[in-house]
Design a protein around this nucleic acid. Structure first.
Lengths: 270, 270
DNA sequence: TCAGCTGTGAAAATCCTGTGAACGCAGGGG
DNA sequence: CCCCTGCGTTCACAGGATTTTCACAGCTGA
């Protein structure tokens, strides 16, 4: 049901006409997109958790090659597409050898740009899928996306598809509070009907299974009136046998001082 | 691992001038290259263990799209680059969406063609490499790709073509859950029609044959709502001859290897 | 304390997979 | 040329597994 992963794209371009047209299409396609008018440090790109980047060469100026080299070096899993008005074979070859995935000449058709970006991120994903996709680890939990399975210390957790996708989503956004609407949208793939409690029910199932296999850890925290947050935290430690009673009463952990930002549904692509 | 893997390229093109020039360069670069003047069945491409393919669209004629779909479907780890004399945006988009990795217009510079092929195959290092060396062994099963046959301890399993390809695909991805769509795409070569149950039927046939020749082993596991996973695991400790419902009834195996979500192939008491 | 949320347990509704069997097709033999 | 056989595909059904829905109880925060 989820073969097509949403594309998280950043566009670095000053050609507002082009960007506007492209944005309209990407939005319609449900991509998450961020537009920038100048180059930003590669580490900020890392933080954006992108899977594709479209850069107009002219924005980069003299730094172009070194910038591309750094970006490709630091984000080996990012699909990088460069576009440029005029270019020579030598430039294109140089960029491609540097690690850039595709080069498109301008003017170009937005549809083709999108198709190429899709191709590039498809390839990245595939190449990572089988080999050494570092499993997501949290607390005693380990999630392997390629196996559709989650593991706790002594074996695999027995999760259904929805449970797994929900857990994966939460764990992927570790530390962030996700609103129900956003969760529903991303796991179920469409908007949540008014009064739907499915998310709550699945949260409960996850909590039960997690508590059973990995007692003494609080994994999923409720934010009243908002949603849920995943954050593995060993609980007090006196009563591991206590049922799914949450540590919601206890005030916030000292660790998560940084991001208590809520992810709103409006940020979520279809 | 070697960062720079030799590229094994096949070129399908009738433009001898272009091919000659390109060959000179690829040879100088140490690539292994095979030149063909007409399309060959995707399974023969599989046998060639390529990591990149360059096709001139005009060679394909009317079959172009279905051929590309089959090739991209059956060889998801292959970098496919299409080149063509004249083309429209719609054609390029269609090809890219079909799974083609790059599209180059002719005339083009050989150096750029090579750079693009490199870019496309850059991330295609798969663990398949190790498998080529010897037969794939799993449980009591041994699969020899070169002979198109599978063996259990005392003799060969006779599998039909589809059965063999399915088994090979699964075993190749031992431990990973493969979704039905992905399986179908890779074995049949094109997208699965909605409601098609062929995969399930072949899984059953495989399970029957495996259980008959190698009882007491669970080879193919079902992940409900997702797909199948190949992983040889001896069932129950003591009585391989009676895989009744006991296995399912047992709550949790402390060993952790077993997973009650997984439906083991069980033979029905007639 | 109150209205609004969330946790829970269980029933009801859906969806998914295993299975047996029929169908159509292609190749080989008679 | 026709029949037989092996293979791949399709169908319909049954039994389960999973998801959704509901009603109610327990909490939360103002």
């Amino acid at each position: 049901m989820n073969p097509q992963q949403t594309i998280r794209l950043a566009v670095i371009d000053q050609d507002s006409g082009f960007v506007t047209v492209l944005s309209k299409r990407t939005e319609a396609a449900g991509w998450q997109q961020r537009v920038l008018t100048s180059a930003i440090p590669p580490d900020e790109l890392v933080a954006m958790k992108l899977n594709a980047l479209l850069i107009d060469l002219s924005v980069l100026g003299d730094e172009a090659w070194s910038y591309l080299e750094r970006v490709c070096g630091m984000l080996p899993d990012l699909g990088v597409v460069v576009c440029a008005g005029r270019s020579t074979v030598a430039q294109r070859v140089r960029a491609l050898r540097l690690g850039v995935d595709d080069w498109i000449g301008k003017p170009c058709h937005p549809e083709e740009v999108m198709a190429r970006i899709e191709a590039v991120s498809r390839r990245r994903r595939r190449s990572r899928a089988g080999i050494e996709t570092g499993p997501l680890v949290a607390g005693e939990l380990e999630i392997r996306a390629d196996q559709f399975q989650a593991f706790v210390g002594d074996g695999s957790l027995d999760l259904t598809r929805r449970e797994f996708e929900l857990l994966q989503l939460l764990a992927d956004a570790k530390g962030q509070v996700l609103e129900r609407e956003a969760i529903y949208q991303r796991v179920w793939g469409y908007a949540m009907a008014h009064g739907d409690r499915s998310v709550d029910v699945f949260i409960r199932k996850l909590r039960q299974k997690l508590e059973k296999r990995s007692p003494g850890w609080g994994y999923i925290h409720t934010h009243f009136g908002v949603g849920y947050r995943f954050d593995p935290e060993p609980i007090g430690g006196t009563e591991p046998a206590t049922p799914a009673k949450e540590a919601a009463a206890s005030t916030e952990a000292p660790t998560g001082a940084s991001d208590s930002q809520v992810v709103h549904s409006s940020f979520t692509p279809a």
